[in-house]
Each structure stands twice: as C-alpha cells, then as structure tokens.
C-alpha cells in the first residue's frame, strides 16, 4: 500500500496538461482506480498530471441534439443531472450505482472510460447508447466511437499523449436503462446490462462478460425479431467467455447476463 515515487503537476489549462502528457506523464482524474493500483504497485507512473484544475472539462450540456458531458464531470453530478436522466437514462442509472458515495464524489466519467475496467459500468452504457469520446492530444483532436475505444483489459486506443475531454451521446437515444449485479453495494459489477430502445430496435451491451464491453447480439436478434424477453434472455450471453473467479462461473455470468438484459430492457420499456 506504499506507492513508488511519483512527480505530480496540476495544470490549469488543457494546453499545459497536453504538454505534460507529451512529456510522459500519466493523467489522473478522480484517482479512484489509479491510486489503489499505485498503492498496490500495480501501476508506478513516474509522473502524474492531475486534470482536476481544468474547469473546461466539467459540465453537462446539449450541443445541438447531442448530450455532451465534460470528461472530468463527477459520477455524482451525472447521476443527479435532469438532463442526463431525460436524454440517457442508462447513464444516469449507471452513474448512480458506481461504488460508494465517496467514489461517486471523486470518480469521473472520462476517467472511468479511459480506465476501461471490464467490470466498470460506463463502457457498456456508452456502447449501447452509441456514444463517443472526444479526445485531444499533442497532434490534435479526434473522436473515438464507443466500439473503438476499448481494446482489451484496461487498454484503450488512446495514445499515451492523449486524453478524453468530453463524452458525446447522440440525440434521440430513446428510452434506456442500466441493470447491474454486484455482491456488495461498493463493488464493481460482476455483470451489467445497458438496454436502449429506439423505435422498434433494442440495443443491449454487457459489462463483465469479456475484457471489454460487448453487445448482447443473441439477445438483440431475438427481441428485435419479436421474440419474448424470456427467450432472448437465454441467449444474452451467447458467444461470451467471461472470466471464472471467486465471483462465479462463466455459466453463472452468462445466466446473469440474460437476467440483467431482460431487467434493463423491462426498465427501459417502463420509461
């Protein structure tokens, strides 16, 4: 629980932050994952650039028909936002259930997506909602679609000198909800499901079923063909090979995926 020696800066402009990143610093947002990893010496960054001084990275607003959320917006603000609740119910659900109140007060939407923990809730929510992240780096700005962000366990397509500055969710996302299962209130999800209903199309993405968030295609195909939720639930985990561990077998997790996909879809339908 004793981290290695680390340099630390807290810039007040994005340009300054990007310059520090270009020098090899690792960005730290809420620190809810990175600090414990450092204390366990699973991460030993030589220097940290703290993004908490960048006021332009916070806030929730409409940009045309899109909902745009600053990367440093805390989970508590996301969970409590009427705008998020109206435009992206699944995100409001997920943000309200992350960790403990202390974690929600510190943790950020951008940090959570950049961390890309397979048991973190937000990647599946972003995937189901068809969102994207806006990224800035030394070489300029770009947008990464949810499906292209995470590539593996704690691994994204962000370059070392890039950082997420905002999360963009497309307008007209329809009704959505997130359902998760975890053992203790403060735990990561064992499995989670984000369901989005646009017109007659249901989209479901799953947390905890692979190294990255995945679509529940087996579930979607059946529901979108008019099948029952019960029938769809039996196929929600088709093709997945979730990790076995102290939190259960792969079979259990595939079962949970079905239960949660169904529950999330039912909750979205009720909205």
């Amino acid at each position: 629980m004793i981290p290695t020696k680390t340099a630390y800066t807290r810039p007040e402009s994005i340009e300054e932050a990007l310059a520090t990143l270009a020098d090899g610093a690792r960005p730290i947002a809420g620190g809810m994952s990175l600090i414990p990893m450092m204390k366990l010496r699973l991460a030993s960054p030589a220097s940290l650039v703290d993004l908490s001084g960048l006021a332009e990275l916070t806030g929730i607003a409409m940009d045309g028909s899109d909902l745009v959320i600053g990367a440093m917006t805390r989970h508590r603000e996301v969970a409590g936002s009427a705008l998020v609740r109206a435009q992206a119910g699944a995100l409001a659900d997920a943000a309200a259930g992350i960790g403990s109140p202390a974690v929600r007060n510190r943790g950020t939407i951008g940090g959570s997506l950049a961390q890309s923990d397979p048991h973190g809730d937000l990647p599946a929510v972003l995937l189901a909602l068809g969102g994207s992240v806006e990224v800035r780096g030394a070489s300029g700005s770009r947008t990464i679609a949810a499906a292209d962000l995470a590539v593996g366990f704690l691994t994204t397509t962000l370059a070392a000198d890039e950082m997420i500055v905002a999360v963009r969710l497309p307008g007209g996302a329809g009704r959505s909800a997130y359902a998760k299962f975890h053992r203790r209130a403060i735990d990561w999800s064992i499995v989670g499901a984000a369901a989005v209903i646009r017109g007659t199309t249901t989209t479901v993405a799953l947390t905890g079923m692979a190294a990255v968030a995945v679509r529940a295609t087996g579930f979607e195909v059946i529901v979108n063909a008019g099948g029952s939720l019960e029938e769809a639930a039996r196929h929600a985990g088709d093709g997945t090979r979730p990790a076995e561990g102290l939190d259960g077998s792969a079979e259990y997790k595939r079962h949970l995926a079905g239960v949660l996909a169904r529950r999330a879809t039912e909750a979205a339908l009720a909205r």
Partner: peptide, 27 residues
C-alpha cells in the same frame, strides 16, 4: 460475504478488500 481463499499452491486469492468481501452498512 466473507471467505479467505487459498489456491492449492498456497497463494492467497483474497489479498485485498476487493476480493475479501467485508460488507458495508448498505448491505
């Protein structure tokens, strides 16, 4: 909730409060 688990080779599989499940008031 709680169980201290060893692997067959003697590795402790519950070495932090993530794996070792102490409940909180919410539970």
């Amino acid at each position: 909730f709680e169980e201290t688990v060893y692997a067959e080779d003697g590795q402790l599989r519950t070495p932090t409060l993530v794996e070792y499940q102490v409940p909180s008031a919410a539970d």
